[in-house]
Nucleic acid binder design. Structure first.
Lengths: 224, 224
DNA sequence: CCCCGGCCTGAGCAAGCGCTTAGCCGCCGT
DNA sequence: ACGGCGGCTAAGCGCTTGCTCAGGCCGGGG
């Protein structure tokens, strides 16, 4: 765990200033955050929050990474917490839509569960910095924002529980405790954001496949 | 009388001061931290760190919960980080010993794995505040302390991996990817600390049993 | 041409942080 | 009886924090 480059100029800690197309997905992720400066602030905040945590990150650090003065942050966001809320809301929506969109309507429960888990896990691995903030920093949200985010999380839970219930009803799965198993499956997927390392030898796709298999085993699905 | 004992100074945030044996296990956990004041500081710090996170917790808050003035903390611990390190080291050792001690030497891999997971998970549920600090705040440790703790974590990983390898070798388990599965099993157990709620309807024992079953499924063990 | 409004900066405020210091209190052995 | 000492506190130092504010730069409409 490295301790981040000390600044070079007055602002700008590390990081070449240019946007450059090095991370195409990452850029798309915040595509509808405008104007450009607001988007740069979001990506800077995500990087900082993921690295050090919300409370250990200063507004000066965020602004510095975005190449601006500390005061510029407050033109685009009311508070530091507001910035976290924006990230959290967008991230949760993204993950939830992914989870739902991966399931093709016609297919059997096992395929739907595997597809959902694969997509969900892949996102948590690929965007593990964003996911880290989304999943582990929500305690820093204010009460109202927190309540709103919890709503999205309940939807995510319901989505997974739904597929498992379908599988149990159709006899494809053998699950003694649906609620508990749903919790475990979600927990397993979410925690990918904590340990996944981009420099490691496992790709997001590989982790997705591995986890889809593990989850099918957990719900007692007999391999074909 | 009006001398309001020194027990009730301006500090002391909430919390009735009495020790009383309300939480017997929790007390045993830090049994060999002496003197008494140092132990009170540890339990106060665990509560605060678990609730708000290390960086959002102030030394004044910790001292207040322990019923002392802020300065008293520094008689027993060099820094706030030192306090975290102590908690982290003791917690990691405890969990590791539990994980190893639960496995009875003679038994077959499935029983050993189930026993290990059950004990490990039960600890994470029962002591979820301690476990939260131990598992999710290690990023706040200084470099040397962090390195030391990582050593303990590697031992934990090796312990689980060992049982799984044994099961694969004996033909009891069917695991395509031992390293990945070990990671997933550990991740699943650890994350219990994040979501477990003492007010919830699941007891630590129930979660331990559920998880032992789930893990056996993950490693492809056929139920008896 | 000027002025307007969006974007940004330099300077800085009040509050709170981790930690230190000087000194007090009461229990110990002698 | 008393000196030493471990355990404690009041006070506060130096610094950083989240955030504010008066003003500057610049491109576009009148």
């Amino acid at each position: 765990m490295v301790f981040v480059a000390r600044a070079e100029g007055p602002w700008r800690a590390g990081r070449a200033g240019r946007g450059m197309g090095a991370e195409p997905k990452r850029t798309e992720e915040w595509a509808d955050v405008t104007p450009d400066a607001a988007r740069r602030l979001v990506t800077a905040a995500v990087a900082a929050f993921a690295e050090r945590g919300y409370h250990a990150t200063t507004t000066r650090d965020i602004a510095g990474r975005a190449g601006m003065s500390p005061a510029a942050l407050y033109i685009h966001y009311r508070t530091k917490e507001d910035l976290l809320y924006r990230i959290s809301a967008i991230g949760h929506r993204l993950a939830l839509d992914l989870l739902r969109g991966a399931q093709r309507p016609g297919s059997d429960p096992a395929t739907r569960l595997a597809d959902a888990v694969r997509a969900f896990v892949r996102w948590h691995a690929e965007h593990h910095t964003t996911a880290r903030v989304v999943q582990y920093e929500l305690g820093a949200l204010g009460e109202e924002h927190y309540a709103e985010i919890v709503g999205l999380r309940r939807e995510t839970d319901a989505a997974i529980r739904g597929v498992i219930e379908d599988g149990v009803a159709s006899g494809d799965f053998a699950v003694p405790d649906v609620t508990g198993t749903t919790l475990a499956v979600l927990s397993l997927c979410i925690d990918v954001a904590r340990w996944f390392n981009a420099e490691g030898k496992r790709t997001p796709d590989e982790v997705g496949d591995l986890y889809a298999d593990l989850v099918l085993r957990m719900v007692g699905h007999r391999a074909p």
